[in-house]
């Protein structure tokens, strides 16, 4: 239990150890720890930034999809309008053509009817003349009664 020279040796050994730790060990480890802390902090900040960027990009994408959808709807709208327009126009054209063709046909029919009536009246006139001449048994001056006959035919 005596205090002896060991005291001084132990004190010096302890202090020397502390000095060695201070000089050769501590700074390295603290530097490594601080570096790593900084690295981790940077990494976390970068991750946070990336997340924010992703959020922005997502928002932008959603916006663009919305715009594209609106544009598509507009295009479809316009196409539909155009189609309707074309359909209407075609219908109108067709109706006009129909009316025109009908009118032409009507006119032709009328002309043909008139022509037929004319032929018929002429034939009736000739028939009447022939009948009359047969009845009279004599020469009827066709030229002299033509006017009369024609008048008759026109009346039929």
């Amino acid at each position: 239990m005596d205090i002896n020279l060991t005291l001084i040796i132990q004190g010096l050994a302890f202090f020397a150890t502390a000095l060695v730790v201070m000089k050769y060990g501590w700074p390295h480890i603290m530097a490594a720890i601080e570096d790593r802390q900084k690295k981790i902090a940077d990494g976390l900040a970068a991750a946070e930034r990336a997340r924010a960027e992703l959020r922005d990009a997502d928002a932008r994408v959603a916006e663009e999809i919305k715009a594209a959808r609106a544009q598509a709807a507009e295009i479809i709208d316009r196409a539909q309008q155009q189609a309707n327009h074309m359909l209407d126009k075609a219908r109108e054209d067709a109706q006009a053509e129909l009316a025109r063709l009908k009118a032409a046909a009507d006119a032709e029919i009328a002309a043909a009817a008139a022509r037929a009536r004319q032929d018929l009246s002429r034939q009736v006139g000739e028939l009447a003349l022939a009948g009359a001449s047969r009845i009279l048994q004599r020469e009827v001056d066709a030229a002299a009664h033509r006017q009369l006959l024609e008048q008759l035919a026109a009346e039929i």
């Binding site: 050994a13 150890t17 730790v21 490594a32 720890i33 690295k39």
Partner: peptide, 22 residues
């Protein structure tokens, strides 16, 4: 004591030398 100091310094200085931020 000296043996323990050697052990302590050996372990500590080795790991200090190898310490990286990785």
């Amino acid at each position: 004591t000296l043996l323990l100091i050697t052990l302590f310094l050996g372990v500590f200085l080795t790991s200090a030398r190898k310490a990286t931020a990785g």
